[in-house]
Each structure stands twice: as C-alpha cells, then as structure tokens.
Write a protein that binds this DNA or RNA. Structure first.
Lengths: 333, 333
DNA sequence: TTGTACGCGTTATCAA
DNA sequence: TTGATAACGCGTACAA
C-alpha cells in the first residue's frame, strides 16, 4: 500500500491540511519547525502525492495529448520532440497518439484523451474536415493545430504555421540569383496544399525576375523517391540547368536520374531540395535545401497550448520562416 | 460543467449504480429496457465518464510511460511507434519521455509517472547503473527494459533483447560465403556493449571458417559518418576486399571513402552495413545491411508490460533475431 | 498557526 | 432487478 497524505499527517502529528499546504508551497502560515518536521517525514516515507486524487479536485492533470499521423516519420518525430520539450519545461507530460491519417482512430483518441482528463491537445488533423472543430469534436479543452493550415477568418483556430510560400520563393530565388533561367520543378500533388503554396512562392520569384513561368517545366510528383527519378528524367529532357525538388526524398531521386544520364551535380545540373532530412548532408555532393524548424515549431505548439490552458495571453498564430541550408549541389552559371 | 454520472442517473430515473453497471458491461442483471434507456441518455448527453475518478477507485489508469533517450532519433521513434501500437491495441495510452541520457531527467520522469499513476513503464535505462532497479527506483509498478541488455542471473528484469552476436555473425558469414577473406570491420567504441557483441559474432564466423582474425583489420569507430570515412580509408590501405560497418551511417561514410579512392562498390570493395535506415536503399548501389525489427520490438515491449500489469503469464525475456537485407553492395569474389 | 469536514466523480459492497 | 452508501486520496473553506 502506498503511503498517503494521512499517513504522513499521523506520523508528523499534524493534520492533513498542514501536509497539503507544505506540499503545494502554500505554507506561508506554517511554522518553520512544523514545516521541517513534515518535510522530514515526507522524505523518510518517500511519500508521493496521488496525482489522480489531486487532479480530481483541481480539475487539471498537467497532461496534454499529441495527435500526429505517425511518430516513425522523421518529420513528426522532430515535432514531437519539440512539443515534449516545451511541455516538460512547463511541468506537463504528453500522451502520444498515432492517428495514421485515420479518421476513426483520431476520434477514438480524442475520446480517450477526454476521459483521461488531458488539459489540452496538439493536433495535426486528418483532413481539413471542419467536423473536428465542431459537433463531432466535443472536446471542450483548448487545442492547437500544427502542420495543417486553416484560414482564420471567422473560425477561432490557434495554430502553428509554416510559411511554405516563402520556402518556395527562397529556393527559386536562390537558383535565379545564381544565373539559372531554365528551372525545373518537381512538385507534390496538385491537391496538396503545401505543394501549391510552395509553387506560389516559385511563381512569385519568377515574376520578380521577369521570367515567364513555363508550365512544361513543372512535374507533378508525389513526394516519393521514385517520382524524383521520374521527374528529373523528364526535366533533363527539357534541358533545364537546375531542379527544385519539393522534398529531399525526391531530390535524392533526382540525383539518381542525373547520374544515370551521365551528368554531374552541380557541374551539369544544379539541385535544390526541401526539408533538410538527415541524409541530405551525406549525399555526394551534399544537398542544398530548405529547412523547416520542426523542433522549434513543436516547442512553440506546446507553449502556445499551455498558455491557453493557463488562460494567459497568446497570439492565435505563430509563424515560422523557412531557412536555406547552403551546401554544394548548386553552382552559378 | 461536464455531465456526470449523477446527471445521467437523474435523467434516466435510476441510480448511479445502474449507470455504472451498464458503463462497465456488468449489466447482466439489468433489465433490457433500463439498459436501453440508460444508453439513450448517455448518447444524448454525450456523457464521458471521468477517468480520474474511475482510476482513483480501480487503481489503474490504463496509461504506461515510455522512457527513451530521444524520440527524434529514428531508432527510438520506431520503437515508440511499435510500443504505442501495442499499447493502443490493448486499450492503453502512452506518455512519452525523452531522457537525453540524463540521469536526473530520468529520475524526474520516473517520479512524475508515479504521481500520475501510470500502470507500468517501458524504459531504455541511461546506464547499466543498477540503482534504477533498487533504492532510487521506488517505482513499485511493473517495468520492461528495452534496448539495453541485463544479465538475468539473480535479478528479475523483464526485457526485450536483440541478438547482436547473431547480427555480427550473419554479416560476416555473408561476406565469407561470398569468398571474402580480407574483411575489414568498422566497429563502435570498445566500451560499447552492442559493438562488442557484434564483434563476438564476427569472430565466431571467422573461427567457423578457420580464418584467423586479424586485429589490424579492426577499426574502432564511433557510429558516426566521419568515422566511417576514416575507417574505410584505413582499411582500403590494408587491402581488404570487403568492409563490415557496424551501422549504416558509417557504411555511408565508407562509400564516400571508397569513391574518393577511385574504387567502385561492389566491384572493387564490398560493403555491408547494420540498421537498415531508410536511406540505405536509396544509396548507389543500394546497401546490403542487417535489420533489427524495431517496431516489432516496441510492440513486444508493450505487450509484455501489459501482461505483467494484468498479472498474466509472460516470459522474462523476448528475443529478436537480426535479419539480412540483401541489396547490391556485396559481390562474390 | 493548525484542524475538521466536505466535495471531486467514480466503483463496489451489500441490502432491499 | 435495483439502489444507498462507503470508500479512493487529495484540496480547501471555514472554524478553532
């Protein structure tokens, strides 16, 4: 049987109130001696207050939920790392949930988290289905959205945003600055919001440089390695001098295709990626790429959520800017 | 104010006992009509039982803790994924804790988890310091050790083990089978248990093939990319025909050194790695490597732990065998 | 400065 | 077949 606050009270010859007070640092009205005695007994008995009982009365658990598609995906692992750090630094624990992009699982987790009394959640919602934020989602605790972006016109959604338009702009601008004019783009699906945002950034850069955007130099990939190969193969045929792949995986595929065509990087073709996954710096040549501060974003999500929980002021959105990681896969022409 | 079991009872014109019974499927003695009525009210009011109150009396939370060094490390992310899956399938949630190999943090988490009433924990302990399992570790709930291996002579430690000796054996044997005799090894630190185990496997393979083990063909690395470069450079000088790198990161380094020496893989030098990280199949040529079923191991850890929690029978150790992933970085000589 | 007693939302025992 | 009530371990008015 674990020792309770009553046991401690008895051993210290005081009431439970006294114990509770020193436990919660509300002991300004407790005499020095009493406090010392209590502290001593607590240590001796190795007493740990029962968080369940405590939470039952205080109505807070100091636990938050984290709903992401899949922790074994490096992207989300980094976000999770940041979120856990942020939460831990403020005295919160995080319950990990892998939704697998499955609506049903998401709902089940949401329900479990509610039952467990988590104080709030960080979520990368399955789809843009608004249901989550209305009827189906009867979770009345605060939440913060990460990874997906919602228009914040009338809705009231707290979120961590990443400026994908700027990311696309940065990559393209970098190539233009180095004299490239025939720039091929390997994008994600046309239905992918992220990809479309990045493409918007590309177009912006072209426009500023007065380069007319050539639709035929845009290849629709799917963020996978193979589509990087295919895309590069296609673009090489089009005579591009540089390729912007919208993630590093596709950039690696592009490397493969370029080498297969008997060409060199960056001498014959420059390549720029997006994500800065671990291997990108181990490639030969090391890949120049765009980085998203994932850990920082996770941390920010936790901090924003906890401020909401504590009813402290917080902006409704936190914006993060992409950063270019300059390595050796791009050359000036 | 959330709706409680009392509200439901009142609305359904029955007692809380009745509600509780149908809630917990102990409703064999509840009339059909009553049950239907209760169920209806529960749905209408969207009532969710308060898990805290429930746990307070049942003395179980259906939550387990997962203590790992760092979730942003792919290795642990995979284990975490498996553990979460295993736990979820049995109705448990998992609290994620990053210890950063920091003893202090580990202790703090352990204490927090105790306070929160987690039913058990899965832990990759900091060091082999036995303290964790004795005095300092006053956590009386079940736990399962993962990633590190303890002798189970007198102690009573439940753990998920991976057969590193066999892994080293498999890799070496694979090279020997293909006619290699001058085999270079890029190991981890001499103090690293894992590395020493794998090396033991190598020696076993040599012995069986009646090849005398040449100490000068053993390079002490540190699991990092750079030490893979250095190691390969050294071994090439020694005239090896094959290199066994004890992780893929070092194998990638070896690729770099081999290419830098103007040699080809696998024509001039064969390379075999260990881990099967994502990129290993994207390398050119794709890397032959040894795989550890990380997700499966995480899952097994959760299942073992929960069996312990439920006081069901479980073996004290679960062994996992390495598997060779055959690709194109090794050739027969 | 310290203590009594109630409430938090459940489950479980036992009586009706 | 159903219900009253005592735990569970803690925080906190309010009283002393």
């Amino acid at each position: 049987m674990p020792v309770t606050i009553y046991d401690v009270a008895e051993l210290a010859h005081v009431s439970v109130t006294t114990i509770s007070k020193v436990l919660n640092h509300k002991d300004f009205d407790i005499s020095y001696e009493t406090r010392q005695r209590v502290l001593k007994i607590i240590k001796e008995t190795n007493f740990t207050p029962n968080g369940l009982a405590r939470s039952l009365v205080t109505k807070k658990t100091n636990v938050i939920g984290l709903l992401i598609p899949d922790i074994s995906n490096q992207y989300f692992a980094d976000i999770a790392r940041g979120a856990e750090d942020g939460a831990n630094s403020l005295g919160y624990n995080v319950i990990l949930c892998n939704t697998d992009e499955n609506h049903q699982k998401e709902l089940e987790y949401l329900n479990l988290l509610k039952e467990k009394g988590t104080d709030g959640i960080i979520i990368a919602p399955i789809s843009l289905s608004e249901k989550i934020f209305t009827s189906e989602f009867s979770y009345e605790k605060p939440f913060v959205v990460i990874d997906r972006v919602y228009e914040n016109k009338c809705k009231n959604i707290y979120q961590i945003c990443f400026d994908n338009v700027q990311g696309g702009y940065l990559a393209t601008q970098y190539l233009i600055d180095r004299g490239h004019r025939q720039i091929g783009i390997i994008a994600g699906s046309r239905k992918n919001r992220t990809s479309m945002d990045r493409l918007e950034g590309c177009k912006k850069a072209f426009e500023q440089a007065k380069i007319v955007f050539d639709e035929s130099l845009l290849y629709e990939g799917n963020y996978k390695y193979e589509s990087g190969c295919g895309g590069a193969e296609y673009l090489i045929g089009k005579g591009v001098t540089a390729i912007f792949a919208m993630n590093d995986l596709m950039a690696i595929g592009a490397y493969k295709a370029v080498f297969a065509a008997g060409l060199k990087i960056p001498e014959d073709i420059s390549v720029i990626g997006y994500d800065n996954v671990m291997i990108s710096e181990l490639l030969d040549p090391p890949l120049t790429t765009i980085m998203q501060p994932k850990i920082e974003m996770g941390k920010a999500a936790a901090k924003m959520l906890i401020r909401k929980i504590r009813k402290e002021y917080t902006d409704i959105e936190a914006f993060f800017e992409p950063q270019i990681i300059e390595r050796q896969s791009v050359r000036s022409v």
